[in-house]
Amino acid sequence: MSKINNDLLKKLLETFGPSGNEETIREIIREEIKDYADEIKVDALGNLIAIKKGQGKKIMVAGHMDEIGIMVSNIDENGFLRFTNIGGVSPFTALYQRVMFVDGTLGVVGMEKLDEMKDLALSKMFIDIGVYSKEEAMKKVNVGDVACFYTPFVQNGDYIMSKALDDRIGCYVAIEALKALKDCANEVYFVFTVQEEVGLRGARTAAYGVDPDMGIAIDVTTTGDTPKCKTMDVKMGNGAAIKVKDSSILTHPEVKKLMVEVAKENNIPYQLEILEAGGTDSGAIHITRSGVPSGVISIPCRYVHSPSEMVSVKDVESAIELLCKILQK
């Protein structure tokens, strides 16, 4: 019987929140955790910081609440919206997807006539919100407005499918760990960071402000378990992934050792992760101030940065358990 809180997950995943526009998702998380933290604050960039007091080491846990999205750059006479990307949006995954603006306005992504599909680029695409003129469009949307993918949350057996699993699933893991921590030996700062998708920008200032002894990011990682994919020894369903390397960090050997030991001691399924492209909040945290030994617990995720990212419930549960046990150590 799964312990997963589907109502909370659905809320976290379906909420709007591209990088720089995290107000809505921040309020949802704040409401969810307010009875469990000793103190809650929001810093100048918009990072939500929940503190669980304790006498031991100061540990910063980071999950980013922003998601990739698009920003309107121009509206033509017929009301079609030209747009640019916020974070890593591929034209091929965005084509013919539905997108949602903060007020709920929906649109579909279309493209100009192309002789060859390989020439597809965001500059040749547009968003159609079903209007007939610029004036009509401007009643709903303006230049500079942002949108995210619009796909419903699905849970079926062991898998979850949704937009924004990167990294609301990390936020979910952090929230569940915060709720589960009763008396904690360490002082834990749960930080729901902003602007990770545009360069780990929220984690950078949050880490400077928190000044932790150790940093742990919770984020998704790619997998090597789909047909003819790039070689990678991470499989969905094989447990929480303990990161060794990505483009932003070489995990501190002691932190990696600690994570592996805790997983072994508690029989928590885990796998080691070597990610060849991509980075996460720990990349910014570990070089803050005089340096912060840092690591990452990853949730294996197929189709990262698509409207239908996929993770395993079992892996999410392993990640929560691993995080809780580490924080109590």
């Binding site: 570990h286 070089i287 803050t288 101030r289 005089s290 340096g291």
Partner: peptide, 10 residues
Amino acid sequence: YRGAIPAAFN
């Protein structure tokens, strides 16, 4: 240069 950044801060 991930080592030089914190070293210089320190």
